[in-house]
Design a protein around this nucleic acid. Structure first.
Lengths: 215, 215
DNA sequence: AAAAGGAAGTAAACACTGTTTGCTTTTTGA
DNA sequence: TCAAAAAGCAAACAGTGTTTACTTCCTTTT
């Protein structure tokens, strides 16, 4: 899914789209393993048997390419989060899996996730076109929806500023992903004290936040 | 404080130390404003009227230089956190200001803070010499101390795994710093929805976590 | 004091990076 | 078929961190 765009296009457009896709796929492969540092235009060009300059016929900059990878990934996070809604399950469980899903999915591609919050993000990135929110923002909205629902159901405190609280939750998730992400740096050995398995850490982290929001 | 090292050193050593300090100060100036990207060896050399190569007589790599800036900064965070302990005040207030101090101090130098959790951090950075914990780790220990105290005083839940909980708290602080840091990217416009002033956000964030830990 | 040794500093090069330019080839549409 | 446009390439530009070979200066030893 995702590519039913190919209908009614001229052969030229289809070819162009195909090459673009080839670039993205190669970039994805390298980026997922080695991040932005490992992904150089020359290496990418080499991998797809093109010249470095050719890539600039498809992407105006390396940044644009990375942005595309990142946004595609956040779309996946968003999808995963939307598959959660067990409306019949107790709300707490729903909230728990909502948060856990965000963290777990983000952790599957640490470099993609990191790209959303580092590097040069032009401030006007979303501002120019408020209707077309970036997927990373949509993911936040999804989180906010969960919080608002909790308040409405009387599970969370009624006096909560739902947006403010969502920012806290988001920040907390964000922090955990960053610290747990098995990037070369923070990696395994970063946390001090006895090591805990990821699963346990994620679960208690989510539970702690939910408890913080609850009545 | 900090530089009473200069006693009993040969003139040569004193001169060397002085140049090293000059480099660090210039680096600090640039790095605080423009981060790792803005800090280039050539620019740094230019600023102190040395040749680029000369810097490598004092630092084996740019990474080492940045690490030194970062560690110096975490020492400051640590100091700030140690000035907090109003043991007579209610524990909740102590905990609140402990967390707030960490976040506020970190936010004063977003680039320094970010340097601790990005870039190439060799895994063996601390592992080789467990006695000499890096300042960033000491800051974590300080946080853990606070949590353990809370449990001991019966304010926090008795069944808490204090290390596990500290990791959560740390991650949550970390995330907020990252998202609030006025780096060019995430900056002002990153958060969605109505904008909240930093102070409010920090306060509620800390309160939410404390509430999550409490009985 | 003079010679030997080592550290400090430099200019130039190396091996990279993202990006732009000018040119050639290929493909397209009239 | 032929002109225009798009695709691709080699080479260059401007920048990066880092290393090398060399000089210059200071320090230590004789």
């Amino acid at each position: 899914m995702g590519e039913q765009v190919e209908a009614g296009l001229s052969p030229a457009e289809r070819r162009r789209h195909k090459v673009r896709q080839t670039i993205i796929e190669a970039a994805e492969r390298v980026f997922a393993e080695e991040g932005e540092d490992g992904l150089s235009i020359r290496r990418l060009a080499d991998e797809i048997d093109y010249s470095p300059g050719a890539i600039y016929k498809y992407f105006s900059s390396k940044q644009e390419l990375v942005t595309e990878l990142r946004e595609a990934f956040f779309e996946k996070i968003l999808e995963q989060m939307k598959e959660v809604p067990d409306e019949r399950a107790p709300f707490i469980e729903y909230a728990q899996s909502c948060i856990e899903t965000y963290i777990r999915t983000a952790l599957k591609r640490p470099y993609h996730y990191a790209a959303a919050f580092s590097g040069s993000r032009s401030p006007s990135d979303d501002a120019v076109d408020p209707d077309h929110l970036s997927n990373s923002r949509r993911a936040f909205e999804q989180l906010h929806h969960m919080v608002a629902q909790g308040v409405q159901k009387g599970v969370f405190r009624a006096d909560l500023d739902t947006y403010l609280a969502s920012k806290s939750i988001w920040a907390a998730c964000h922090g955990l992903v960053q610290l747990m992400g098995h990037l070369p740096n923070l990696a395994s050995g970063f946390f001090v004290g006895p090591s805990h398995d990821s699963d346990h850490l994620i679960k208690t982290h989510a539970a702690l936040m939910i408890r913080g929001l609850s009545e």
